[in-house]
């Protein structure tokens, strides 16, 4: 019998977040970080955007996406610290990275719940 281990589940979330970041994030980042602020695309009407973001399906999708992408980032950055910069304090960096992802996830729940 396989022992219950946490590494495989964290890795699964890392992978899920990686897919989300590869597929959903480019268009969202392009629109809201570059195209709309720089005027390449007309500013969407606030009422319309509020309706889109406030839709229950959007809220659930955004929450899942944000949490997975935060775990993805935390997991990857943790190994970058270890391999790339040779920060050898494994427990410390793990707590720091996953802790940041956890706090970010709480913030995401908070922000999205206000729209529900």
């Amino acid at each position: 019998m396989t022992k219950r281990r946490v590494e495989p589940l964290v890795w699964l979330m890392f992978s899920g977040g990686g897919v989300m970041a590869a597929v959903f994030l480019p268009i969202l980042a392009f629109l809201f970080a570059l195209a709309i602020p720089l005027g390449w695309v007309a500013r969407p009407d606030h009422v319309h955007l509020l309706a889109v973001v406030g839709h229950p399906v959007t809220l659930v999708v955004l929450l899942g996406m944000f949490v997975l992408m935060l775990v993805h980032s935390a997991h990857r950055f943790r190994y970058t610290l270890y391999d790339g910069l040779q920060v050898k304090r494994k427990t410390f960096t793990a707590v720091l990275c996953y802790g940041a992802a956890f706090i970010g996830s709480i913030a995401a729940v908070n922000v999205l719940a206000r729209l529900a």
Binding site: M1, T2, R4, L9, L12
Partner: peptide, 20 residues
């Protein structure tokens, strides 16, 4: 192997003992 390990772990968390 990571994927195999993840599948097995998800099964271990979801399924009751004995069926896995």
């Amino acid at each position: 192997y990571k994927l195999k390990a993840a599948k097995e772990s998800v099964k271990a968390f979801l399924l009751p003992r004995g069926t896995r």
